[in-house]
Design a protein around this nucleic acid. Structure first.
Lengths: 342, 342
DNA sequence: ATTTTTTACGAAAACGATTGAATGGCTCGG
DNA sequence: CCGAGCCATTCAATCGTTTTCGTAAAAAAT
């Protein structure tokens, strides 16, 4: 009927010593005789004692838990990043508590507050697409709960950040399309509130500029980072009088929607329309034609974010200089963008 | 510099009453005068007081946290199930702590022990493919930490379980292939330690029997539930002197590998080989040809598992009769299995 | 032999909250 | 005028652990 877990008190009673002695013996304190230590250790092992982390938390005000807020767990990019966070957290004795913002600012705010009341030791977060206020993160920082951003970051909060060079990745993707002879290159951008959306757009724009290719307003549209948005925008773009001959989608999820739409509409990729996405989800290479994409090391991003966070947590009160780690993207060229050069 | 969070004690001091009075006032106890209540409530609001859940946990021996162990977060089936768990846990004031077994028994054991020492209120788990001992779950139950299984369950532990009718799903998938005129139907099963693997195999076998179709030993192979395994097995199957004209893969991840391999090898689906998977991942419908599959309501599975778990948690000590919820699968017929009937 | 130091341990406070029991003051009935 | 009863509040214990401050006895130094 539920054997209550053994406490230090029981060991003490059993051995006719005080709780303090037991505690010290377990921590191998020098002021306990070798003999007593042995007796305590032996009994503790025998009773399968393990210290109650909740009591410790109360005492030390440290929970050994870190929170992570992502827009959507089921998104492969995020679940992979979570796996990265979990990887280093686990190896350092921390546990990961998951929260989803569902792309909603309100939910993100509630999640952040929850993390504060729950006394997590820190937070790793990737912003919701609708967030434009960031005070909830500042509140956490003021309560000595460090925050580290990854991927979807903001300049409004000074802290560690981990992301990829979105600008450069987008630039290279666009440049690649241009080099394959595409002239009418459309861009489906992400929600403009997110810096990754803006940076990717800028990469696109500057590549177009560099090669002196005209950008048309109607060829630049915006969508949430999901498949439905991609499909919708693809229909919209292909309905234009002047159709694009290439589409650079700000994410693979958008690109998946475009891919589907183009097939529905009977376009051939890349002959009619070249397509390239961003993130290189595992599925992208399985599509037919396989989708070109700008690869992001999602697992590694999670790992590094967790490392930086743990660093902040474990060096509390010692001021550090915050860094922004910019990881490399890698252009994965596949059939969807390999237009024959005429 | 980190404003320490307000405690009941401070409110008490400020108001010149005792901690008990404050506590009772906050809980709206009848033995506190209306006036005092108002004063306490007002100050609490003003100081933005929120009770320390750790102190509560220590006192009540309840953490309002549930653990979840899955083989791999980044697997879409599991991340979706996690989202389901998170959905109901969140709405009932519980938090979700994530653990990965990485398909390893040892890691699963460690995770389970961690959950015990961390004093989670309960556990939702889907077994690692290498697990064949289950004492770690029994240990949890003996410590009054209820466990609920989903998808990958075991008969060895009596508790609530949530899964789909794997047998029937497999039977229908196989039947469908037969009805499309396939005669040489291979099956790539999952790891035999998992009951889902065995049930799916049995569904396949019984369908073959029902229609009097000969099963060949060399057409039944086994693989881990991942893409690489599928690819490998596909090569193996297609190299046989007597090639199969259809493959029923025990999971979509396996089927993805098969899909890729068949394309590499130049087979047409479904003309040369019909293919069907299990789980209906979001990507499956995006492949070319789109992959037929047996859909599992992963999100709902997670939800129901969480509901059952919370029921167990909140009715501790009142004995319940355990149930196994069997959800329905749905056969998603797409091009990969739609062989022309000759 | 006396003082000082070391050794080995215990008592109690602290962390933040809840709660059963006790207490002080008050009113009221007899 | 005294005891009963009630109200509002406080006291103290509890949860499991660490840690500061004592302290008795033993060992060492004088």
């Amino acid at each position: 009927m539920g054997k209550a877990s053994v406490t230090i008190k029981e060991i003490a009673r059993e051995l006719n010593v005080s709780k303090s002695t037991v505690s010290r013996a377990l921590r191998d304190s020098s002021e306990i005789s070798e003999e007593t230590k042995q007796r305590v250790l032996e009994l503790a092992r025998q009773l399968n004692y393990s210290p109650n982390p909740i009591a410790l938390s109360l005492l030390k005000n440290r929970t050994h838990t870190i929170g992570i807020i992502v827009p959507d767990i089921a998104n492969a990019f995020f679940s992979s990043a979570i796996a990265g966070v979990e990887d280093v957290a686990y190896s350092r004795g921390y546990h990961v508590m998951i929260y989803q913002s569902h792309e909603s600012y309100e939910r993100e705010l509630i999640d952040a507050r929850h993390i504060a009341t729950r006394r997590a030791d820190g937070l790793v977060v990737s912003l919701a697409s609708s967030s434009e206020r960031y005070d909830h993160f500042r509140e956490l920082q003021e309560q000595d709960i460090p925050v580290v951003f990854f991927d979807r970051v903001t300049d409004a909060i000074t802290t560690h950040k981990v992301l990829v060079d979105d600008y450069k990745g987008a630039f290279e993707a666009t440049e690649h399309l241009i080099q394959r002879g595409c002239q009418r290159i459309a861009h489906i951008a992400g929600p403009p509130k997110l810096s990754i959306s803006r940076n990717r757009f800028n990469g696109y724009k500057d590549a177009m500029d560099k090669y002196g290719i005209a950008m048309r307003d109607e060829w630049v549209v915006s969508s949430e980072y999901n498949q439905a948005g991609g499909t919708e925008r693809a229909y919209q773009l292909m309905a234009l009088r002047e159709r694009p001959d290439a589409i650079f989608a700000a994410s693979d999820r958008i690109a998946l929607g475009v891919h589907w739409a183009l097939r529905q509409l009977g376009y051939r990729m890349p002959a009619d329309v070249a397509l390239i996405g961003f993130s290189d989800l595992a599925i992208s290479s399985l599509l037919d034609p396989p989708l070109s994409s700008v690869a992001q090391p999602s697992f590694e991003i999670g790992q590094q974010a967790a490392e930086l966070l743990l660093e902040l947590i474990e060096s509390r009160n010692t001021p550090v200089s915050f860094e922004t780690r910019v990881l490399k993207t890698k252009l994965m060229i596949r059939k969807s963008s390999m237009k024959e050069i005429s």
